[in-house]
């Protein structure tokens, strides 16, 4: 990032130094990228998001104070950097919401996926499903013969629930050397630290969850 030198001059109080700040921003950026490129919702980074949000608030106060004393060039730089961090935060929330809306019923019916959402996101999902179902029911489903009203089932149980497409490929970078990794019964791949790969998403999704790889 071009302004990384200005970041180190943020001079945060109550933190062990500017390096911590930089790491958080980098981590958020990576979480955001992972989220963007992954077909399904990943674990919500609640601690990270909370730390960054708090830092943003703190810095906004600092900047507001400096603006009262007359804006300097450095203040403007800080303001711009703040805007960039806020964009990351917003886009991170947004990217998740998009996927949550799209796969809302799949998420609610899947206990493992539910745990990846923040409490606020889970509530959002529930309310969104209710809202959608209510709208469809009142618009026309209630007029259909009773057996045909179900929103999620056509022939087999729950066969009309949109689910993420796991049969897709993703670009990823290996963070820690994993060694030989079994992709499926017939093929395996050597995952070396720092190397880039284009891999099918399905077999590697657990590696993403424990952060031994990142998406790019």
């Amino acid at each position: 990032m071009a302004l990384s030198s200005s970041q180190s001059s943020w001079g945060l109080k109550g933190h062990s130094g500017a390096a911590v700040q930089n790491n958080d921003i980098e981590a958020l950026k990576q979480a955001w990228l992972n989220e963007k490129f992954s077909p399904h919702v990943l674990i919500f980074e609640d601690a990270l998001v909370a730390r960054v949000s708090e830092d943003v608030k703190e810095q906004e106060d600092v900047v507001a104070g400096e603006l009262d004393d007359g804006a300097t060039f450095m203040t403007r730089l800080k303001q711009l950097e703040l805007e960039r961090v806020k964009y990351l935060l917003r886009s991170y929330y947004r990217t998740r919401l998009r996927k949550i809306e799209k796969f809302c019923m799949y998420i609610l019916k899947n206990p493992v996926v539910r745990t990846r959402l923040s409490p606020a996101e889970l509530e959002y999902t529930q309310r969104y499903v209710d809202l959608m179902a209510e709208h469809l029911n009142e618009s026309f489903l209630n007029g259909l013969p009773e057996k045909l009203r179900d929103l999620t089932t056509q022939d087999a149980e729950d066969d009309m629930i949109p689910a993420p497409n796991f049969d897709t490929h993703v670009f990823c970078k290996v963070v820690d050397t994993i060694g030989t990794f079994q992709l499926d019964q017939d093929s395996s791949v050597d995952l070396e630290e720092g190397e880039l790969y284009l891999l099918p998403f399905k077999p590697i999704r657990d590696l993403l969850l424990d952060q031994s790889i990142i998406l790019i």
Partner: peptide, 20 residues
């Protein structure tokens, strides 16, 4: 309600900010 919960207006910055 969700935006109040996360304390951020998410509909701002739909594109990455370039100029202040």
């Amino acid at each position: 309600d969700y935006m109040t919960e996360v304390d951020l207006n998410l509909t701002e910055d739909l594109t990455p900010p370039k100029d202040l």
